[in-house]
């Protein structure tokens, strides 16, 4: 809460979110003090490796982490000033699928195999609006048409659809109640490239129509470039760099972010080799002291190995969790 730059309440504000998982007696710190904000209609990209805690953040917002073995240990999530963690389960249920909805990573498993796709869409409409059964059915049919599936397929089951079609159904479920906030958890990862573009376009169109804000979780920088306004780079459950898309793409400051861009093939450059980041992400139950990235960082100094490393501002709105920013900047030019 140290920042004063925003006077008005942001649409979505996450403050110091911390989530732990418990497994085999080990405590796994999946998310360690993540703070984010997102304005209405904007898109925030959450970028990071598998296991960095991206999905956990999204599920925490909806409070749908598994009951057993996961716990939100701190922080708050405010939607238009309302702290979601303080709401009762009943109040929270009214928000899920209605104000905030989520698109899941794997369309193959995200749909109930024994319920017709139409009913699965109509169900969310029924839960969040008043009316008769035929109203819900009508809305579900509209949604199907909107995502490019003929309404006649209402009575078909998920196994009769292809992967891309299933993802469209998942999107239709997520958008059926015109949510204010869409949590898109790697919506295109399980799809092939041509379908990816279609699905992204579809999400963009529908969002424009309803002015929906989106938290886009991905590890695909190309998707970020295409869709996001702001970007937060996550490493081992912490945001290590946060700024507008232009800032992150044009002037990446954290060695990890720079490393991420180095690992993407460039269409224009004449480099023959990609530059992977050496090493592996740290084990989440045994995070390194100091900067969690220091074991893999080419710029690591003695100071990186201890203490807490805070976010520091490099430009207006651009923040980076690195104490050697200046050295890094000089070296990378």
């Amino acid at each position: 809460m140290s920042e004063q730059k925003m006077e008005t309440e942001p649409f979505l504000q996450i403050e110091d979110l911390a989530v732990e998982y418990y497994s085999d007696g080990k405590v796994i710190s999946a998310v360690n003090g993540v703070s984010l904000r997102l304005e209405k209609g904007k898109t925030l990209g959450l970028v990071g490796e598998t296991g960095a805690g991206k999905t956990t953040i999204a599920k925490s917002i909806l409070r749908i982490l598994p009951d057993v073995g996961a716990k939100i240990t701190g922080g708050e999530v405010k939607l238009e000033g309302k702290d979601l963690f303080k709401l009762s389960e009943v109040e929270m249920r009214k928000i899920r699928g209605n104000n905030i909805s989520m698109i899941f990573q794997d369309p193959m498993t995200a749909l109930n195999p024994v319920q017709t796709v139409g009913d699965q869409i109509a169900e969310v409409v029924r839960l969040h609006s008043k009316g008769e059964k035929h109203d819900f059915v009508k809305r579900a049919e509209e949604m199907l048409e909107m995502v490019g599936i003929p309404a006649e397929r209402y009575h078909e089951y998920p196994h009769q659809f292809s992967g891309g079609m299933k993802q469209r159904v998942v999107i239709a479920i997520a958008l059926a109640c015109n949510p204010d906030l869409l949590l898109a958890d790697e919506p295109t990862t399980a799809l092939d490239v041509t379908i990816q573009a279609q699905v992204l376009d579809l999400i963009a169109d529908l969002r424009k129509k309803y002015n929906t804000a989106m938290l886009l979780i991905t590890h695909d920088m190309g998707v970020v470039a295409q869709t996001c306004d702001d970007v937060a780079v996550i490493y081992a459950g912490k945001i290590i760099e946060y700024g507008s898309k232009e800032q992150i793409f044009d002037h990446p400051a954290h060695p990890y972010t720079i490393g991420l861009f180095g690992a993407i093939p460039s269409m224009s450059g004449d480099e023959e080799w990609l530059h992977p980041i050496d090493g592996l992400p740290p084990e989440p139950f045994n995070l390194p002291k100091g900067c969690t990235f220091h074991p893999r960082c080419p710029y690591a100094t003695e100071a990186c190995r201890g203490g807490t490393i805070d976010m520091r501002r490099t430009a207006d709105g651009h923040q980076c969790r690195c104490i050697n920013i200046d050295t890094v900047k000089k070296q990378e030019g």
Partner: peptide, 14 residues
């Protein structure tokens, strides 16, 4: 533990 159960919860199903 299936994904579609999480989907159902995310829809606000009791």
């Amino acid at each position: 533990r299936s994904d579609y159960i999480t989907t159902a919860r995310a829809k606000g199903v009791p």
